[in-house]
Amino acid sequence: MAQLRRHQTEFAALQTDIVTISFEAAWRAEIWLEETGSPFPLWLDPDRTAYHAFGLQRSFWRSWGPKNLWYYARRLGRNGRKPIKGKTDTHQLGGDFILEPDGKVLLAYRSHDPTDRPAVRLLLDALENGRSTT
């Protein structure tokens, strides 16, 4: 998210809106927005209809592998942001999609694990070149 924020003007120059989607409850989303100051709209998909429609997955093993445990440990050490209390589903993997107004999907990136996000350069390249990456 921090990377997207840093490159926000480049996406805007490419006539691209960024929308974030979460399956979490509204109260958790409000806390997250307050803590992160995310500049992007946050929409909620509590029953995961959109999540499933875009073919996104959940996985216990891919969510709690050593790579992800290390990521969470580093994050706690780096910025001290404590986890939001309350029950949540930590096994959702997430993903990124670039959609054109005519319905063309420029990029479909389904994350292998929760720390796996596409590089901003890949997103910008897809927009600049119209390449299809799935």
């Binding site: 996406f11 927005l33 589903d89 997430g94 670039i98 107004p101």
Partner: peptide, 26 residues
């Protein structure tokens, strides 16, 4: 977040590209 409905279609047909970022848990 305020509970109002938000159809996906308007943003997909506003003439601009859209990057949808499905977040993992918050």
């Amino acid at each position: 977040v305020d509970g109002r409905s938000q159809p996906l279609k308007p943003i997909l047909t506003n003439g601009r590209s859209t990057l949808l970022v499905f977040l993992r848990h918050l």
